[in-house]
């Protein structure tokens, strides 16, 4: 798992590339916790995430709830079909908002 953070003041975009499994979750845990404590908008570019395990979902949900408590929102951008299906099947679609940007999906 490799992550890149683009800070834009009150919002930030986190680009994740790789597998959000146990070791991937360790990589993203601290950046997500830090950003979700300070940003009002957190965008997670998921296009490069090939697999997500429940521990990875847990960190995303924790960040989404932290941002949400302050009235902000966390959005998952362009997850692939398999990742989006895991989120839906896991009953997390209401907690983890998904947005698609046709241009960046190519």
């Amino acid at each position: 798992m490799q992550i890149q953070i683009k800070d834009a003041g009150s919002t930030a975009t986190v680009t994740m590339v790789g597998r959000l499994d146990i070791s991937g979750a360790e990589v993203v845990a601290l950046p997500l916790a830090t950003l979700s404590g300070s940003k009002n908008g957190l965008f997670i570019d998921m296009a490069g995430v090939t697999f997500v395990a429940s521990i990875g979902l847990r960190h995303l949900v924790a960040a989404a709830k932290a941002v949400g408590r302050r009235g902000g929102r966390l959005v998952l951008l362009n997850p692939n079909a398999a990742v989006a299906e895991v989120i839906t099947t896991s009953g997390l679609a209401d907690l983890l908002l998904i947005e698609r940007d046709g241009a960046s999906q190519s």
């Binding site: 949900v61 896991s90 009953g91 997390l92 209401d94 907690l95």
Partner: peptide
């Protein structure tokens, strides 16, 4: 049939 989110979140 989806009954709801995982336990412990909402």
């Amino acid at each position: 049939c989806m009954g709801g989110p995982p336990l412990g979140l909402v």
